[in-house]
């Protein structure tokens, strides 16, 4: 149960960070924190008690292992995260180039 709560906690913490953020790069880091909550949730779902890592090279195949599928999903998720985070940083830098500020309240945005 604890890992699930941890995932929710981290997700909410990241959201809190985004909502109170005053700096676009700070916001992107908070998005990464949010994203890490999904890794924890996925791994928690695949975890089995008293099981070992799903690497069959040096253990008998009868040994109880944790679910390898969620680990593959988590790896995919990390790849997605890399793409999204790097794009976000690039976008934040472009915003800075065009408006000389990283503070969203000082940048003339679109309203209405």
């Amino acid at each position: 149960m604890l890992p699930y709560l941890l995932a929710v906690w981290i997700f909410l913490a990241g959201l809190y960070g985004i909502v109170t953020s005053r700096d676009l790069i700070h916001t992107t880091v908070c998005v990464s924190v949010c994203q890490s909550s999904t890794y924890i949730l996925l791994l928690a779902i695949g975890y089995r008690k008293h099981a070992t890592a799903p690497v069959y090279g040096d253990i008998p195949s009868s040994r109880r292992v944790v679910d390898p599928i969620v680990q593959a999903l988590t790896l995919t998720d990390i790849v997605v995260a890399v793409a999204v985070s790097s794009l976000l940083i690039a976008l934040a830098l472009r915003v800075y180039d065009s408006s000389n500020s990283l503070d969203p309240s000082q940048i003339v945005g679109q309203r209405g």
Binding site: P3, Y39, L43, Y47, T52, A53, Q71, L75, I78, S85
Partner: peptide
């Protein structure tokens, strides 16, 4: 400790170092 060594490896590279 949650038995996901390959995820740990990629997290080591991505979250702890590269990012």
């Amino acid at each position: 400790v949650f038995q996901a060594p390959d995820v740990a490896l990629s997290a080591l590279v991505v979250s702890a170092v590269a990012y």
